[in-house]
């Protein structure tokens, strides 16, 4: 369980990233955070694995305040909380396998990982993860030979290899075309359901948010302005969250041309 208690974050340049956020996210939920760019979505997500450090309040992950974590504790937290990025952030010159096994780094001793002496189970787990996102045939390809959608699937496999209890996804489909976006979201939903991994995704496409989320949290200028089940949400809700009428850019579309996914 993740609990924000009156959490605020002010960046050194004075920008307020989060403003008195109070929210509770339960285990196994699929939460989509929506809001315009600059609304604090990224800050919200990155607080949970302490890629940014909130300046005020408490943030509990499994009943422990993570704000005072340092060094070892911080790394342990990050092994538990996996992350997926907009630009995949794979090592382009390394093979898919090496990228996926790097999800194991937090669980592996330094010397062992440098010498590439992974346990058999770890290698098997990495391969299994690739299979779950249907990209196991690219095992020995270099990451830069893959398309954007394939790279994002590899990064999902990397997160799976980490065996996290929470997955954070920061705009995971912003660089992809509509069909591929749906594919990636479906894989995220699938691992959320199968492994009961709490999944928190940043999106700004309202149709995707409504389709995949269990629960939608709307943000504007660092504050939570909406929080409720996806079934209660309609376009009007989004207009309130965004503070302006819905535009064409807010909709991803392309759902119907997508047939190859689970």
């Amino acid at each position: 369980m993740i609990e924000f208690k009156d959490l605020s974050l002010v960046y050194p340049n004075g920008t307020q990233g989060l403003k008195n956020v109070n929210v509770k996210i339960n285990e196994g939920e699929f939460v989509v955070i929506v809001g315009l760019s600059g609304a604090g979505k990224s800050t919200f997500i990155r607080s949970i694995n302490r890629m940014v450090t909130p300046t005020h309040g408490e943030l509990l992950v499994d009943d422990e305040n993570i704000l005072k974590y340092k060094g070892n504790d911080l790394r342990k937290l990050r092994t538990k909380v996996g992350m997926i990025f907009q630009n995949y952030n794979l090592v382009k010159r390394s093979t898919v396998m090496k990228n996926v096994i790097s999800g194991r780094l937090g669980h592996t001793g330094t010397l062992r990982s440098i010498l590439n002496l992974y346990k058999k189970e770890d290698m098997a787990l990495a391969y299994e993860s690739l299979k779950r996102v249907n990209i196991e045939e690219k095992l020995y390809s270099r990451a830069d030979q893959l398309s954007g959608g394939q790279q994002q699937r590899v990064s999902i496999a990397r997160v799976l290899t980490q065996q996290p209890s929470v997955v954070l996804a920061d705009e995971p489909v912003a660089s992809l075309d509509p069909p591929t976006s749906h594919q990636v979201m479906k894989y995220l939903k699938k691992i959320n359901r199968e492994d009961n991994i709490t999944t928190i995704v940043n999106l700004h496409f309202i149709d995707m948010a409504m389709e995949y989320a269990d629960r939608i949290i709307g943000m504007r200028s660092g504050e939570i302005v909406f929080d409720g089940p996806a079934s209660e949400v309609n376009e009007k809700t989004f207009e309130e969250i965004y503070g302006r009428p819905i535009k064409e850019d807010d909709i991803r579309g392309g759902k119907d041309d997508n047939e190859q996914t689970p």
Binding site: R75, K76, G82, M83, S102, L105
Partner: peptide, 8 residues
Amino acid sequence: EAMEANGA
């Protein structure tokens, strides 16, 4: 950043 985020 990605490596930091997975606990390396």
